[in-house]
Amino acid sequence: MDSPAVSVKNLTLRYGDTLALNDLSFDVPHGELLGFIGPDGAGKTTLFRVLTTLLVPTHGSAQVDGLDVVKDYRQIRNNIGYMPGRFSLYQDLSVEENLTFFATIFGTTIRENYDLIKDIYSQIEPFKNRKAGQLSGGMKQKLALSCALIHKPGILFLDEPTTGVDAVSRREFWEMLKRLQAGDITILVSTPYMDEAVLCDRVALIQNGRIMKITTPANVIASYPYSLFSVKADDIYGLLKALRDYPGIHRADAFGQTVHLSFNKDEFREAALLDYLKEKGIEPAGIREIKATIEDCFMDLMGKEEG
């Protein structure tokens, strides 16, 4: 257990002209829950496919449990669990048939590792004779996770497990991940939902094949370099339009029924802003300074990346 669970060095993967992964380097210690946060097309799936030995990198190297993803792919495959982004189970097989199948091809049985999946599987067990294709989104996910866990992998790769899943199922899913992590499994998970970032030990903000930042959620927020204010108004759209032209402003983004405004530290003058808005015929319902969210940080980094 000397080597980290995952170790990536200068990893680059090119499809034709596009750099799907652009010079990534990072280590994941054993037992960590690491989240890859970024939109579709950022490179999350490609990265997971390299780490699960499905793709060969163009440059650089990646190790899983100290084993090289290119040379030692066979050993790696014995010790990892993978849940691909698309629901990839046999829709015409029942819940139980799917799980039995995956248990058997990994040379184990449901009973042998039942303890590990009990927590998750017991929720869908009442439907074990139902075809996987007829399950709801949340249940499909639990089944897919059970299948990925059934052989007791040391490292779990979950590619966008919560996409298209409602907020409640998402929360339950993360609670399950936390319990798994407590059972000493290293988990790498990707998601397009920024609000899930705070649930990870560390997050990697990923965009256009590059990791913009990899650190703890608290550090991401602490290193946000601006003063951030939340402005409330009835007409968010009008407020946004007006604020875009306000001098000295860094970003103005809608957040629900408020607008987040960022300024260079100590450059914000509330009175000046209120006057400006009044001129435009807008009376904001309140302005207060707030702490940045991961989403604010992501947009800031993304805006800088692009130009």
């Binding site: 499905l54 495959r77 993978y82 990839s88 189970l89 046999y90 091809i105």
Partner: peptide
């Protein structure tokens, strides 16, 4: 097409 080949490949089969 279903993506299940991905899972089979990642298994020790």
């Amino acid at each position: 097409e279903l993506g299940t080949m991905e899972l089979l490949l990642v298994s020790p089969l």
